[in-house]
Simulated scan of single mutants.
Amino acid sequence: MLRGLKLFSKTSGLCPNASKSAVYCHGMLESDVNRVLETSSYTRSYLPFRYLGIPIFSKKISAAECTSILEKMTGKIRLWSTRNLSYMGRATLINSVLISIHSYWAQLMILPKKLLRDVEALCRSFLWKGSSDTHSHGLIAWDHLCLSKTAGGLGFRRILDWNEAAIGKYVWDIAKKKDNLFVKWINSVYIANRSWWDYSCPLDCSWYWKRIVAVKERFKHKVSLGSFLSQQYSIKRGLELMSVPGSKVSWNKFVWDRLITPKHRFIMWLVMWERLNTKDRIIKYNSSLDSICLLCGEADECIEHLFFQCLYSRKCLSAIKNWLNWHTQSINLVRLLKWISHAKASSIYKSMLMTILAATVYHIWRARNDVL
């Protein structure tokens, strides 16, 4: 072993740092261990240890060993919770920062399901409450949030699927018989020139290898080996193979129009899902609350009434129509969207109408909340 290190040092010019090096022994006599330590001048250490920030274990990794991921996420949330962030601002931070914190780990191993559920719970709590209280529930189920925007979701990453798609690159490397040490070792120890696509792992193999084989089986049920190898593998392609695309919703282009202010988009999105906390929803778990509209005081409050059957909101809509010379008699939000969709006008004009309508919906909802 020491001769191998010296040869490596002479060849590469890199020398091991004794203060940062350690010897890990398993299944050896204590006398042999002491002889290795005396000869090498290195210290003895024990599993687990960290390599490039990842804990290295001889057994299956548990959620307890991955708490640093949750701690980093919680620290970010505590920092952001001091700021007055809109729903859309939080959604952007979840997509760009929070969900990415575990990505480095997820590309190296299949993470415990409990950890991935905790990651989802933290993201869900931050979106709806702006805090790290994982006991709170959201207005819309997490699975729906992970749908694409064209299917009515927010485009969040499906964490479990992403983890398996990231490990899929090892499945592709083995199937492609890529020229690297890992693939050569796998072929020598486990596969032994058998068909990888038909391979079943033995019961006494390592937990890590069992997970890789399980990911291979998931791909096998979706695509043939030839199709799998026909393109260069990427995590995006792996997700496309694993996921079932949701049905396209008719209103996605209106809600996500590029001219609409982001926080207005989110409220419009909630309206289309019928998930705003109007009184008809709140009264289901708080029967002591009256159901009368806070703006007009004339009818029961629900989304259909608020946009735009309510006297207050109807006056706002009428003023907008007069200002724009918008010649339509409809006062129903869905019908107004259909009118915009079928209007014989330029895309810029349609975007302008949608932007103003979304702003109107947002400010009516804000006016309603100010009355509380």
Rank of each mutant, 00 (worst) to 15 (best):
L294S: 07
G168I: 02
A192W: 03
R83K: 15
G152H: 11
R281C: 03
K321R: 12
C201V: 04
A214L: 03
T278D: 05
N34H: 05
P48L: 06
S41M: 14
S347I: 04
L241V: 07
Y312G: 06
L108Q: 14
T150Q: 08
I174N: 12
H363Q: 10
D179V: 08
W269S: 02
G75D: 00
K177L: 15
P112R: 06
S227W: 04
I101H: 01
S103M: 11
G4D: 02
S188R: 02
A151E: 09
K177E: 11
I348W: 13
L52D: 00
R368Y: 07
G27M: 06
R218Y: 09
K176Q: 02
T134D: 00
I186L: 00
R265A: 04
R124E: 04
L29D: 03
D300F: 13
K114E: 12
K60P: 14
S40M: 05
Y24S: 03
M354D: 02
P16W: 13
I282Y: 10
C205R: 00
C15I: 14
W172K: 04
F126D: 01
M272K: 02
I101N: 01
K129T: 03
L52R: 02
K338V: 06
F254S: 13
K20N: 05
C66V: 06
E38W: 09
K20P: 14
K236N: 02
Y349T: 12
Y190D: 00
I56C: 11
I167K: 09
C15P: 04
M352Q: 05
T360S: 11
I267A: 09
D198M: 10
L5S: 03
C316R: 15
E38F: 06
L154P: 07
R194C: 04
L37Q: 01
N252L: 11
Y199E: 02
T328D: 06
Q107A: 15
I292G: 05
T134N: 00
M73F: 07
N369V: 03
D179E: 04
Q232D: 15
K178G: 05
A91V: 11
R258D: 08
N322H: 15
G27R: 10
P55Y: 10
A22N: 12
Y46P: 00
D370K: 14
K76I: 00
T328V: 07
W256Y: 07
V183D: 04
T355L: 10
R158P: 14
A106M: 05
I56G: 01
S313P: 13
I292R: 07
M268K: 02
I167R: 08
Y46C: 15
A165Q: 08
H137G: 11
E274N: 05
P202G: 11
W142L: 04
